[in-house]
Design a protein around this nucleic acid. Structure first.
Lengths: 185, 185
DNA sequence: GTCTATAAGACGATAGAC
DNA sequence: GTCTATCGTCTTATAGAC
């Protein structure tokens, strides 16, 4: 995955992948049937733990609104800056999956699962607030899409995405839902 | 660009690229020095007209809030569904550019230009509204990131992004900014 | 400017020794 | 289960005729 993130799937030769892992090509082929098989296997192992983290914070009953905003920002900065591989890797996986019909469904399911855990976490914090509850699924979708977009913008140039903007945007969305529920939608 | 979108940069062989264009490999090499040269040249020609379109609608003084929401949704649906190449192509370009330091700056500039035209369009509609004007740049950044994320989610599975959600999200953000400007931010 | 033919090399994948 | 050595194929890029 490290080599694929750096070079791209096709430019990542099995020789380099094997040697990065401390093996030779032969060793790889005794464990995997093909390069595609290797990639799809590693893909299955790789569940996305980041959004679960955020969901855990969102779900924490003592967390204040500011805690949530700070958690979202930390999530973004960690992903885009510290783990600088994450953006390219996700793009590679996305491209790989949408071009293979049998994987496209799995990718969609993955997105759906992440959204579901986000919804559950947020539901815990917004129960009793009907206005927000009704739009919870849409809000989760927006937060996920925004995260993806921010990671890519930030990778092109960190100064494009001011620090704290992810949390601020979430704040705007939340308030926007509240103030929209009264009038027309 | 069509072949690159379908197969990916590496899997798009010069033979297929040439034949798709109705030429042979030799003809390509009499016009371009290398495959990278071909791609970067085509990359430069390809300016993104879509956001300009949206900006034009946003800038129209007679446009109602509903017109703007409808325009944003049309923008998304057109991009993700009709031009189904756009998502993969943008991902390919992004990956290609962030891996080449000399292109990364050009990519960042492109993002900055698009944001600038979005800001100008919106400024025309929000003049006099200080609360929104102050956050215009951030709002534009959020709308751009959201657009990118939506296109990718929708390509994995259209039902992940309900119709109208882009416009709704923009509506929430706008209202959120208005209601946030009074209290703490 | 575009073609055909070809060069040089890298790649994924396999065979067989250990 | 991992190694070395090798096979066939495909690729980018070039040379030279037209």
């Amino acid at each position: 995955m490290q080599v694929v993130a750096e070079k791209g799937f096709d430019e990542a030769s099995l020789k380099e992948i094997a040697e990065t892992a401390g093996f030779t090509i032969g060793a790889v082929y005794s464990n995997f049937a093909s390069k595609d098989d290797l990639f799809t296997d590693l893909l299955a192992e790789r569940s996305n733990p980041k959004h679960v983290e955020a969901a855990a914070i969102l779900a924490h009953p003592d967390a204040s609104a500011n805690d949530v905003r700070a958690a979202l920002d930390r999530l973004l900065v960690d992903a885009a800056d510290q783990e600088s591989d994450l953006g390219p890797l996700q793009a590679e996986i996305w491209l790989y999956a949408i071009r293979r019909p049998e994987l496209q469904q799995r990718l969609a399911d993955q997105f759906r699962d992440r959204r579901e855990s986000l919804i559950e976490s947020m539901a815990f914090r917004t129960q009793g607030n009907e206005a927000v509850t009704a739009d919870l699924s849409d809000l989760a979708t927006v937060l996920m899409a925004l995260y993806q977009g921010f990671v890519q913008l930030r990778r092109a140039d960190p100064s494009l995405v001011p620090p704290g903007l992810y949390g601020t945007a979430a704040h705007w969305l939340f308030n926007g839902i509240l103030s929209s529920s009264g009038g027309e939608r």
